[in-house]
Design a protein around this nucleic acid. Structure first.
Lengths: 121, 121
DNA sequence: CCGGATCCCTTGCGATACTG
DNA sequence: CAGTATCGCAAGGGATCCGG
């Protein structure tokens, strides 16, 4: 039932790597959140809440936590009167920009490819 | 409640483009399927079924259909005794390789970044 | 061999309300 | 302001069987 590992080690590793990457970007919101923070450099909770159309505070909270665990963003609590929390991309998080740019470019090409007329598939 | 569209047109377009791209790669299986076909150039249904660990025929069937709709793969029915179906990437589908490679590279870096020891987060 | 149909369980995620 | 808690639906996806 199992192929001998030696025969597919490289492919398997590739697969796993892709899987890891996709795992970080799972759900409906992650890239938008990253994209938002990336664009503004530093961003507060409620600002992101506003940037990302349609997300709920519960989701945002959950997603941010996951991103933090994955070392993509850093959370800083500011000692203002009503608490303020700032999020920013880590050095590692910033390396995602390449991928986002790639996806952006590809997405535009794709839209042209699939249909030249409408804007929402 | 709505920002004036003119102020965010480019950002919105970027968002949409990323969304389009992610939409094509949604679900648990798409990239693995593409990756499989890409690696072998042409691939039959049951071969892919074997390549992609854990996928069910129902899922594979569904995913392939979506990929075909999105013009990423091409389906060819071969007139053999028991029917045979071959899938291959379209020219457009092949442009995804860049992204997959990117994700692969990033995924490897990510694993190192998050933890240097284990292999499954 | 290819893949559709059905059944069912799990998960994602939205809405709302509440706390420090 | 920044989150947490609870509820509940609907989509995703696995197992199995069926038909061309």
């Amino acid at each position: 039932m199992e192929c001998k590992p030696e025969f597919q080690t490289d492919r398997k590793k590739e697969m796993m790597a892709v899987h890891d990457a996709m795992d970080v970007l799972n759900g409906k919101w992650k890239i938008y959140i990253i994209s938002s923070i990336c664009h503004y450099n530093k961003r507060r909770f409620s600002d992101i809440l506003n940037d990302v159309t349609g997300i709920s505070n519960k989701m945002l909270s959950k997603e941010l936590k996951e991103l933090e665990i994955n070392k993509l963003i850093e959370r800083t609590v500011l000692d203002t009167h009503p608490i303020t929390v700032q999020y920013e991309l880590t050095k590692h998080g910033k390396t995602l920009k390449t991928i986002i740019d790639n996806l952006t470019a590809w997405g535009m090409e794709h839209r042209k490819e699939v249909t030249g007329k409408n804007q929402q598939e």
